[in-house]
């Protein structure tokens, strides 16, 4: 079931800027910002694989998505 991105939330206060999310993102959605914190620069490229959220050592990333088929029901 294809997922559709609603939001990528990055808690900048918790992010320690390790770059794991940026490096392993298959869609190259993320980059480091000027403060060396993760930043969702190209959210339109996100495939909602959730890997950045799961691999974040700082629990700083939340990928909010909707399953395409349930979109109407949940919204």
């Amino acid at each position: 079931m294809k997922k559709i991105l609603k939001d990528i939330r990055i808690n900048k206060a918790w992010c320690k800027g390790c770059g794991i999310c940026v490096h392993f993102c298959p869609g190259k959605v993320l980059e480091m910002d000027e403060n060396d914190k993760a930043n969702a620069r190209y959210p339109e490229l996100c495939i909602c694989c959730m890997m950045c959220e799961l691999r974040c050592p700082d629990l700083a990333i939340e990928v909010i998505s909707d399953d395409e088929s349930t979109d109407e029901v949940s919204s």
Binding site: A13, W14, L54, C56, P57, L59
Partner: peptide
């Protein structure tokens, strides 16, 4: 208690996450 005390990139945060 967040941000936690582990270093940037520490794998232990990923284990806690998992």
């Amino acid at each position: 208690f967040f941000p936690h005390l582990w270093c940037p990139g520490c794998g232990h945060g990923i284990v806690m996450n998992g």
